[in-house]
Design a protein around this nucleic acid. Structure first.
Lengths: 253, 253
DNA sequence: GTTTTGAGTTGACTAGGGTCAAGGCGCTCT
DNA sequence: AGAGCGCCTTGACCCTAGTCAACTCAAAAC
């Protein structure tokens, strides 16, 4: 199953960025690790999970992983790369819903409508673990720990969505966004103070419900205040605590 | 179990508003009906569900059903009355997260943190079905239909939270809010064109991330445009289609 | 090498909605 | 009845962030 490729895509040589790395380490930093590990500890259910997990990709930057309205059949855990989810409203305007880093899961919001309610686009070359959902759901019935994990993932995402809905200033939003990204990178074993923004200013602006110009201005202001250093899409957080203070009202707990 | 009361509350005579009504009809309009019905069709699991459901209340308007930080032990289905959920941020400002009508479920966002992440306050005399969650979760493992129902409820709420996060004008937000309320009342068997707003203008404003004055102004404008009639908290929707058009970008599907 | 294109930055102006303030209406409590 | 209070409405003003526009820069296309 390691070698499976989506139809129509040529396999390409692995690069340092997109290489899956060793399974042990990758799974350790994956949102599903507790579920997967629970299954993978020599129990007979191991085979069950292996049947419903499939490694897919690579998707090149700009390619769709799924589109609004596609029938819901599986959820995806990001193995490498970054993904943006978005909807387009009736006026044709895009609304960015979220960015997903390696180890995070997309597609959970499709369970209810039974169709994907948003687009998912790779921002850079990306690979995934694809979990067949009906089978996953069935497995969850037999394995409480898997069920619990799904409940928690859903509930967690619900909490995250709620935070963005508050009325907050541009500075608060940006500070919270950067702090959140920093912590998510840290949780996956990357540097928390220095990383690459894989999304454009426009995407950030859209996600934070600001104008692209405002994002530019706020970043410039943060730089002149010594909170961050930024050049293009390379970001260094100089004052993590200062940023955290600014964004605290938007951050969990 | 029908007669259980929270400690410290005197039973009070049922009123037309707060009376549970007959079980059959109530359950028919409840979000949990498909799960409950599946369980209650003469199967042995009937007893299991009855053990974990408890009818609680009445809570008077202003009373807390649960508070932020309370340990998570159960979810609640509203049987009668209306409930507001909210958080207070570090500056002490309240943020209204949602309003819940009879037949709707509160507490799902507590699964992940394992504590309630928000307050829930009755806006008017309210009664509930309380479901012990660990037991419910265990039941879900044995009964796929219950599990599926929980997944769907969570995923549905996730979709709803996402909609509020967009950047929309005051008019769009208010129109979508009224249309949504109207449809939820209709789904529960009440009039969709004429109903009582159980929350204050301030609560509506807070929920929609507007100022109370703006809510007032928008409602006045809607009235002068012939979209609604409103007197105090009594609302009549004169032009449902017009409202729907206005709020369409915020409404599901 | 030149042109084109798109992302990003910065400045000037504008507008939607927040804030402040005053006043009306309908409660409840003496 | 009168006082007090909370909720609501309306008006005047202001501020944050959006819009429009000009310009830079780097990478891709020719």
């Amino acid at each position: 199953m390691r070698s499976s490729q989506p139809a129509g895509l040529l396999p390409q040589p692995p690069s340092p960025i997109t290489d899956d790395g060793d399974e042990e380490h990758f799974c350790h930093s994956c949102s599903f690790s507790s579920a997967c590990n629970a299954v993978g500890q020599g129990k007979p259910e191991l085979n069950a999970l292996q049947c419903l997990v499939e490694h897919v990709g690579p998707y090149q930057g700009g390619q769709h992983v799924f589109r609004t309205g596609d029938p819901f059949r599986s959820i995806f855990a990001v193995r490498s790369g970054t993904v943006k989810t978005s909807v387009v409203d009736r006026d044709g305007r895009e609304q960015v819903l979220g960015f997903y880093l390696p180890g995070e899961v997309i597609g959970l919001n499709a369970i209810y409508p039974d169709r994907f309610p948003c687009d998912a686009v790779a921002l850079e070359t990306a690979r995934f673990c694809r979990f067949q959902f009906p089978a996953m759901s069935a497995l969850a019935s037999r394995m409480p720990v898997v069920q619990q994990h799904l409940f928690r993932l859903l509930s967690k995402e619900l909490g995250a969505a709620t935070l963005l809905a508050g009325d907050h200033s541009a500075d608060e939003r940006m500070a919270a966004f950067l702090t959140d990204l920093s912590e998510r990178y840290a949780a996956r074993g990357f540097s928390s103070t220095s990383f690459h923004l894989s999304m454009s200013r426009g995407d950030i602006a859209n996600y934070l419900r600001l104008a692209a110009e405002t994002v530019s201005r706020v970043l410039s202001r943060f730089r002149s205040q010594g909170l961050i250093e930024i050049e293009g899409r390379e970001l260094t957080v100089s004052d993590p605590e200062g940023l955290r203070m600014l964004g605290q009202n938007l951050l969990p707990s």
